[in-house]
């Protein structure tokens, strides 16, 4: 474990807590993409299949359970409890355009052609594009609540910090994982224009307005 990965995991947990609090406190999921949340739930389900077969550490197991439980709870809150506030019209990204390419790519490019490895690779590729429905929704509505932009900033920072973690591990442990690095770079790049808007607008107290 290194400071970059720990900071990344904490930013990830922080993002999930912000989102759950936003939905629970406002009893509304307006402005949140349910499709992205479904994709995140799928990412954790396909990545953490080894939860019961491989024990890495207490930290690792606790975080996996936390991510699985929180993503499930978020999907439940959005599609069941507060379904009346779910903005279906603006959440119109076709996620099959993400699922199919990620599945095909994970069958073609992976570390080992086994079920667990292909599913892990699928989850890595899917995670890199899972935020697209959310960013698409923000661009369609043209704005985002500040709490939603804090959520996106924390979520985008998590994988950016993981990139630093992989640089650290390459230097210190001389190991690297090209699949994770490639997907992580794509994932972080997708947030770049949001990061710019967040830093130039939201941090100055303005609302996040995307140029329509």
């Amino acid at each position: 474990m290194n400071i970059f990965r720990l900071a990344g995991d904490l930013a990830h947990v922080f993002a999930i807590i912000i989102l759950l609090l936003k939905i629970w406190k406002t009893r509304s999921c307006a402005g949140i993409s349910g499709k992205s949340q479904i994709l995140f739930a799928l990412v954790y389900l396909t990545r953490y299949l080894d939860l019961f077969t491989t024990y890495v550490s207490l930290y690792n197991s606790v975080m996996k359970v936390l991510f699985l439980a929180s993503s499930g709870a978020t999907v439940y809150l959005m599609y069941v409890k507060f379904r009346a506030t779910y903005d279906r019209n603006h959440d119109s990204f076709r996620i099959e355009f993400l699922l199919v390419p990620c599945l095909l790519l994970s069958l073609l490019i992976n570390h080992e052609f086994t079920v667990m490895e292909v599913l892990w690779t699928f989850s890595i590729y899917l995670e890199s594009v899972a935020i697209l429905p959310q960013l698409f929704m923000v661009s369609k509505t043209g704005e985002a609540e500040s709490i939603t932009s804090h959520y996106l900033f924390a979520l985008g920072s998590y994988r950016a910090l993981y990139l630093l973690n992989w640089v650290y591990r390459y230097i210190v442990e001389s190991h690297y994982d090209l699949i994770a690095i490639f997907a992580g770079i794509v994932q972080t790049i997708l947030y770049c224009d949001f990061f710019y808007l967040y830093i130039t607008k939201v941090l100055k107290g303005k609302k996040l307005q995307l140029p329509a």
Partner: peptide, 10 residues
Amino acid sequence: AEEQRFKDEL
């Protein structure tokens, strides 16, 4: 340097 999957990462 060795290319491998990091099994200890989330």
